[in-house]
């Protein structure tokens, strides 16, 4: 029991007629990184908000390190750090002032708050910018300060809501190494992301959420395996025959085929030997191919196979 950082049973949150979160169960062990993956509006942030005591679930229950989020709210708040989707720091104040205020609110004395703030500013390479107003900060610097503010109390559980959205690739890689280090020091991290490679890179376990429901919960490798060892990619020469080709592949593999905008067909494959059948069948009806490719499936394809929707692809 107590080695679970997060345990949620049947969490529900409704806004009007919309069941934003519709019966989410979670079990996240202490010391791991859990990636919550889903398109916009899937219910990721609403789930985090309930776990971080910002909003009350309409049904279900959740425990953080064994403490009930509804009954032992203040205890839970002493154990978590939250970095929201939008920077939650004061724009008009300096980095140092922001950290001092949050530090004081966490119960540090003025001296300790200052020491802790200096430590964090150094660790996040913000020392030089300590006394600058936030309006002069870059997006990456804001994110770092935001994360630093969440770490003031050395919380054993950290929620990161889309921590790298809008960051350039270099800053994103740095954020990843920061997150890995948090876990090395003994924290548990739950992060939401729309980026499938981010979940793949960081997470020990991935929870896929779609329309308020958990559609899969597994390790990154397990998820990929569950939808096929390999992924088949075929490009046909004539765009007119794309749908015919898709039908043939669906008949042989008994699975859905994803068609990209560039008329590329992608399908998960459990049995590589079926490739011969597909190629023969396509040849019989006279469809010419320009490219055939077999590779490990991406989480993008996993997501498609699990939810049957291409929303993620379309958005990107």
């Amino acid at each position: 029991m107590t080695n679970l950082a997060i345990q949620a049973n049947g969490l529900v949150k409704t806004f009007g007629n919309n069941r934003a979160v519709d019966g989410v169960d979670l079990k996240i062990p202490t010391g791991s990184i859990c990636g919550v993956l889903g398109p916009n509006g899937a219910g990721k942030t609403t789930t985090i908000n309930m776990l971080a005591t910002l909003s009350k679930p309409d049904a279900g229950s959740a425990k953080i390190f064994g403490y009930d989020v509804m009954k032992e709210t203040q205890k839970v708040r002493q154990l978590i750090g939250l970095t929201g989707q939008f920077a939650s720091i004061d724009e008009t104040l300096t980095a140092m002032e922001n950290l001092m205020i949050f530090g004081r609110l966490h119960g540090y004395s003025r001296k300790d708050a200052k020491r802790k703030a200096n430590e964090l500013l150094e660790e996040f390479a913000l020392t030089e910018a300590a006394n600058k107003a936030l309006s002069q900060f870059s997006g990456g610097m804001r994110r770092r300060l935001d994360l630093a503010a969440s770490l003031l109390s050395n919380p054993p559980l950290i929620f990161l809501d889309e921590p790298t959205t809008g960051l350039d690739p270099r800053t994103r890689t740095q954020m990843w190494s920061t997150i890995r280090n948090l876990v090395k020091n003994g924290s548990t991290v739950m992060l939401t992301t729309q980026y499938l490679d981010e979940a793949d890179q960081l997470a020990d376990s991935i929870v896929v959420i779609d329309k308020g429901r958990v559609v899969a919960n597994d390790t990154p490798d397990g998820l990929k395996k569950s939808v096929g060892e390999t992924s088949l990619q075929i490009t046909v020469k004539s765009a007119d025959s794309v749908l015919d080709a898709a039908q043939i592949i669906e008949r042989i593999l008994k699975t859905k085929v994803q068609i990209s905008e560039s008329s590329e067909l992608t399908a998960p494959m459990n049995n590589t030997n079926k490739l011969t059948d597909i190629l023969t069948a396509l040849k019989e009806v006279g469809i010419t191919l320009t490219n055939v490719n077999l590779r490990q499936p991406t989480l993008d394809e996993v997501f498609f196979a699990l939810t049957g929707n291409t929303e993620v692809k379309e958005e990107n």
Partner: peptide, 9 residues
């Protein structure tokens, strides 16, 4: 969104 941080503290 800063209110969210205060609320989680």
């Amino acid at each position: 969104s800063i209110t969210n941080r205060f609320k989680s503290m």
